[in-house]
Amino acid sequence: MANVVTSSASSAGHWLRPDIVRQLIWYLLIVVLVFWCITAPSRDANLSLYFSFMMWITLASSLNFIAGFAGYMPFGFVAFYGLGAYGTGIAVKVLGLPIWLGVPCGAALGVAFALLVAPSLRLAGIYFAIVSLSLAIICQRVVALLPEWLTGGSLGINLGVVADREHGYYAMVLVLVGVLVTASWLARSRLGKALKAIRDDVEAADAMGIDVARSRLKAWLLAALFASLVGGVDAWFTGAFDTQTAFDVLVTAKTVIYAMAGGLGTALGPVVGAGVLVWVDDQIWRAFPVLNNFLLGLLIVVLILFAPRGIVGSLMQRFPRLRRYVM
């Protein structure tokens, strides 16, 4: 028999209801996080580090929509990031659009690709993961083979004066807010519950009236949208990219590791995972530049061994009452 997870709802006042406390904590976290990031330029902070921090939180959170909520692990997730960057670059360099319009064009390209390959969601588990990885590799090859006037060939695209670190930085703050608000909505919504049911047992969810195909497609498109936006905004911030950097499999690997380290399936997990690991990575790099990757790898192995459900997931498993306060 199961140990009862107790509730304090009956004794608590109305405003202290766990669901309200949970939302308050979450929105407070968003406000603090955004304030901290938005004031970084005025504090002469390391913009690249802050940008990287926001970028990985956004990527890990968007991966969480499809992997954490719906249970589909896309090993080719980088395809959306890469297409977002190239879509933005082409819109700016070839079509002559302003960069703030180029980024949505890049996002549209990523979402269109997600729609095109959506039938791969009929597969599950490792089969889906491998097909997704293959699609990303195909995507990289196709972009590399496109005419030089379009994608810049082996030199990639250089946005030149259009690239703007400061505006790119603030654009990333906006994308971060978007992904966090979407994550909190998804965690509370009926779609989120349907996705979790699909993750836990797709046939049982189907037999309980959940439209599996439609629900997972929504999660897939949401994940693609934010990953493509990140690709476009990163292009805005850095100004130059090629097929090697835009479709680097390490982008997927880091996104997966950060999301898993925090804990898939909650809105909070990927924020904690990406936040902690980006910070730890920076600290290790400052202290032990030669051993940076070795020590970070070691930390990840230890984390996965001792907290297989991630930091947030394992805490919720160890202290079940926390579940009611974690978004």
Binding site: K193, K196, R199, D200, D201, E203, A204, A205, G265
Partner: peptide
Amino acid sequence: RTFRRMDLID
């Protein structure tokens, strides 16, 4: 085949 990582209400 319960939804194993969802609470009973969900």
